[in-house]
Amino acid sequence: MQIFVKTLTGKTITLEVEPSDTIENVKAKIQDKEGIPPDQQRLIFAGKQLEDGRTLSDYNIQKESTSHLVLR
């Protein structure tokens, strides 16, 4: 499924993911596309910070959901 990640600069990154993917996996995909190390990434969805060990389905992130990327 596709999800979108919006950066603070207003850029939207499109990612191909599975509901069973962990947040860690998603951060690795963002690193592949954008070159941002996962330890600098914070992903926010529905006002919550997403934890590495959880999956997209844990957070009820469905296709075409948009989460926000904040850099630390």
Rank of each mutant, 00 (worst) to 15 (best):
T12L: 14
S67I: 15
I13L: 09
F4D: 05
Q40G: 05
I36A: 03
G47T: 04
T55H: 05
T22R: 07
F45I: 05
S67F: 15
E64F: 13
S67C: 15
K29S: 04
R72E: 15
P38D: 03
T55M: 09
K6D: 09
E64K: 08
S20K: 08
T66C: 11
T9C: 15
S67R: 11
M1V: 05
V5Q: 00
I30N: 00
I61V: 07
L71I: 13
V70P: 02
D21R: 01
E34V: 15
L8G: 12
I36V: 08
A28W: 11
D52S: 06
I30A: 01
V26R: 00
I3L: 08
I61C: 02
Q41E: 01
I13D: 00
I13T: 02
V17T: 03
M1G: 03
N25C: 12
S67K: 11
P38W: 11
K27N: 00
V17P: 01
R54S: 07
L50C: 05
N25T: 14
I23W: 02
I3V: 05
K33M: 12
V26L: 10
A46P: 01
V26E: 00
F4Y: 13
R54Q: 08
I3M: 05
K29N: 03
I61D: 01
T55W: 03
P37C: 08
T12P: 03
S65D: 09
T9Y: 14
R72C: 15
T12E: 06
K48G: 06
K11V: 08
K6I: 13
I3E: 01
E34M: 15
V17M: 04
A28G: 09
D32S: 12
S67M: 15
E16W: 14
L43D: 00
L15I: 11
T66W: 07
L69K: 01
F45W: 09
P38S: 13
K33Y: 08
Q41N: 03
D52L: 05
N25A: 14
Y59Q: 03
Q2I: 15
H68F: 14
Q31C: 13
L69N: 02
N60Y: 06
G53P: 05
D39W: 13
Q31F: 15
K63P: 15
V5S: 00
L71W: 05
Q49L: 15
T14R: 09
V5F: 06
F4H: 12
D52R: 04
A28S: 12
K33F: 08
Q62G: 15
Q31V: 04
R54N: 10
E18H: 14
R54H: 11
P38M: 15
L8M: 13
T14P: 06
T66L: 10
T22H: 04
L56E: 01
Q49P: 11
E34Q: 07
K29F: 05
F45K: 03
P19D: 06
G53V: 07
H68L: 14
E16F: 12
D32K: 13
S20I: 06
I13C: 02
T55Y: 05
T22I: 04
V17G: 02
H68N: 08
D58K: 02
L50E: 01
E34F: 08
T14D: 04
I30P: 00
N25I: 14
E34P: 01
E24S: 13
Q41I: 10
P38F: 12
V17K: 00
V70F: 12
L56K: 00
R72K: 13
L56V: 07
F4P: 03
K63I: 08
Q2C: 10
P37I: 04
T22W: 04
E24C: 09
H68I: 15
D21S: 07
V26P: 00
P19M: 08
P19T: 07
P37N: 07
R72Y: 15
D39I: 09
T7N: 06
N60R: 06
N25R: 14
T7Y: 11
I30K: 00
A28V: 11
T9M: 11
K33E: 07
V5P: 00
S57Q: 13
Y59C: 03
E64C: 10
F45A: 04
Q2M: 12
I3R: 00
S57V: 07
P37D: 06
K29C: 04
L8D: 12
L69G: 02
F45D: 01
I3Y: 02
R72A: 14
K11F: 08
K11W: 08
Q2L: 14
P37R: 08
T14N: 06
T66F: 09
K11L: 09
